[in-house]
Design a protein around this nucleic acid. Structure first.
Lengths: 237, 237
DNA sequence: TATTAAGTATGATCTAAGTCATTTTTTACC
DNA sequence: GGTAAAAAATGACTTAGATCATACTTAATA
């Protein structure tokens, strides 16, 4: 008899990712933590393996801590009345997810799911808030991060209100190309549509246009950006 | 010969609004400041009278401090390629405006203009950051505020992507009705359209429908909300 | 490797909402 | 108080993009 799924997950989760050796550390908000602090985080965190499309947290639940992405991708989204998702952000290696609701004391206004297999650590609310309170660099990093995101979302709103779907697709592909770095963009057509803010059918049609125009190339579901400059032109400001 | 405009402004600006007696204090992030801290803010701030549609700061400029609204309304907006404004937020009495860019160290990604005659105090960057560093309550208040706004903007994005203009107008009117509290909503049709994210003509047409349906009543440019419940129904989630 | 399900693609149709042109009303200012 | 300018309103027209129906392809699982 084969192993149970739980066993497999446990096995993978026991990769023993320690903060000290975490490849994502230097890109993360935790980069300013002292050796002692890191050791303390290490002993208070739990690291787990997530399969594709598993929830980290759901809309309306109360935050119990933060998630630190060691490896993988996570979509942050909110669901409309009709159930349609709007993806607000795609988080990647090194990012800390879910600390916003931590400060507001409110329930999550968004949900988070893995987009692919991921290794993600969890740090409890108390430990995290304690660190923020005592570590000036971490705190300033968070203030900076929150502010930057606020600016990002302002321009997201403007794009939604003023740009055509075609323009938004171009600018979305550029954003995703950065996030997926050396990999091809790897999102379902539906997720991509939910990021751009359009119907899946419309997205597919426009993506075909982009292919015909030599802007992108598709490898089944994966999308390769061929002409970054062209997309920039198309995306406008 | 009558007084020059500068004199009049000076006169009004010399209302001597002190933080201790500021009516907006209790609603503001500064409510947690100690007596000493307030005195220090007081001696380091400048308070000025702004006419209608004057800029507090413009997109792309570097922040030199924060603005505290003693009396009045301020629109926070961003301009698209074609010059069309997208209004992100309408700030009112008690709100502190412009502290987001302060933490990110970047230039303003948005602009701010008065929507009506306003009394607004200015606190320099150094003084403000200093207070944030030393006052735990203020700091936590700011973290909470930033987080809440982030959540607001996520739902703003979702609304833009998924709701019809009619639904967005309903929800915008509800938001504005809260902001204008006991007053009627007092925005130009163009500003309202730029808040809803639609063309001015479309806004005017829909507003007329709302009038016909008994949801609102207009007093020339001002808008009175008659049927809050009806608007809530219409706005959806 | 068959079978099913999920995801991707395409076609046909409809309408919400944008654009441009013009008129009416309100506001600002000599 | 009269005139000019700005804001609001209405009409006619056009189209981007949503929706629904259906076909095709890739992935999953027995």
């Amino acid at each position: 008899m084969g192993k149970r799924i739980d066993d497999l997950m446990l096995e993978k989760s026991h990769k023993h990712v320690t903060c000290e050796t975490c490849g994502a550390l230097k890109d993360s908000l935790f980069c300013s933590l002292t050796g002692d602090e890191l050791t303390s985080v290490d002993s208070n965190k739990s690291c787990s393996y997530f399969k594709k499309d598993q929830p980290l947290f759901i809309e309306g639940s109360l935050p119990r801590g933060v998630f630190c992405i060691n490896e993988g991708k996570v979509k942050i989204y909110s669901r409309g009345e009709d159930g349609k998702e709007q993806i607000i952000h795609v988080a990647t290696t090194g990012e800390i997810v879910g600390f916003r609701a931590m400060f507001s004391g409110e329930a999550y206004g968004v949900a988070a799911n893995t987009l692919e297999e991921s290794n993600i650590c969890f740090i409890g609310k108390g430990d995290f808030l304690n660190m923020v309170d005592t570590n000036v660099n971490l705190r300033n990093g968070i203030l900076r991060e929150l502010s930057k995101e606020l600016a990002d979302r302002a321009s997201f709103i403007k794009n939604m209100a003023q740009k055509s779907v075609r323009e938004r697709l171009a600018s979305s592909l550029l954003i995703l190309d950065d996030i997926y770095a050396e990999d091809f963009i790897n999102l379902s057509r539906e997720d991509l549509a939910n990021f751009v803010g359009t119907a899946t059918e419309t997205l597919i049609r426009l993506l075909k246009d982009f292919k015909d125009e030599g802007l992108v190339k598709t490898h089944v579901r994966k999308i390769e950006v061929l002409d970054k400059e062209g997309l920039i032109q198309l995306a406008g400001s």
